[in-house]
C-alpha cells in the first residue's frame, strides 16, 4: 500500500483541526498548492479515516475533541500500514514538555500556532519530495 502511495502522483494530505476557520485556511492553501486535502474536525473521525485511507502527510492539532493528537500520532506510527505517513503537529500548546512528548510519539515536525502558512507549505513540500525519492 505504501508502494501505491509512493507511485501516486497526487499527494494526499489529511488536515485534523477542530477550529473550522483554521481548517479551512490550511485546506485552501494546500489545495491551491496541488494537494488532495481531507478536512477532519475531531480525533475519532481522524482515526476512522486513517483506518480506511493512506495519507502522505497528516497535519495534526493536539487539543482535539474526542481523542487528542498525541494518541493519533501513536496510532499512526504504531500501525505498520500507516507508519510511513509523515506527521506535522500543529498546536497552540508551546510548553517544552509537549514538544518532547511529540517527538517521543513520533511527530516529524512541530509547528506552534500562530504559524506561517508559507512555512507549513514548505515543510509539506519537503516531506513529499523525500517520499518521491
Amino acid at each position: 500500500m505504501i508502494e501505491a502511495a509512493v507511485t501516486r502522483k497526487e499527494k494526499r494530505i489529511m488536515v485534523v483541526e477542530d477550529d473550522t476557520n483554521l481548517n479551512k485556511l490550511i485546506s485552501y492553501n494546500l489545495s491551491k498548492n496541488g494537494y488532495t486535502v481531507e478536512s477532519i474536525y475531531d480525533g475519532i473521525s481522524a482515526k476512522e479515516k486513517l483506518s480506511k485511507c493512506i495519507f502522505d502527510v497528516v497535519v495534526l492539532d493536539i487539543m482535539l475533541p474526542g481523542i487528542d493528537g498525541f494518541r493519533i500520532c501513536e496510532f499512526i506510527k504504531g500501525n505498520p500500514v500507516t507508519s510511513g505517513t509523515f506527521i506535522v503537529v500543529l498546536t497552540a500548546r508551546a510548553e517544552p514538555l509537549d514538544k518532547i512528548y511529540g517527538n517521543i510519539v513520533g511527530a516529524d515536525y512541530y509547528l506552534t500556532k500562530p504559524f506561517s502558512v508559507a512555512k507549513l507549505i514548505d515543510i509539506i513540500k519537503e516531506l513529499t519530495v523525500v517520499r518521491d525519492r
Binding site: 476557520n21 500548546r93 500556532k113 500562530p114 506561517s116
Partner: peptide
C-alpha cells in the same frame, strides 16, 4: 495552557488568512 491555546488559535487564523 488553555489561555495560550485560546489566544493562539484566533491569532493563527487571522495571521494565516492575512498571509494567504
Amino acid at each position: 495552557a488553555n489561555v495560550s491555546h485560546e489566544l493562539r488559535t484566533p491569532i493563527a487564523s487571522i495571521k494565516g488568512y492575512a498571509e494567504t
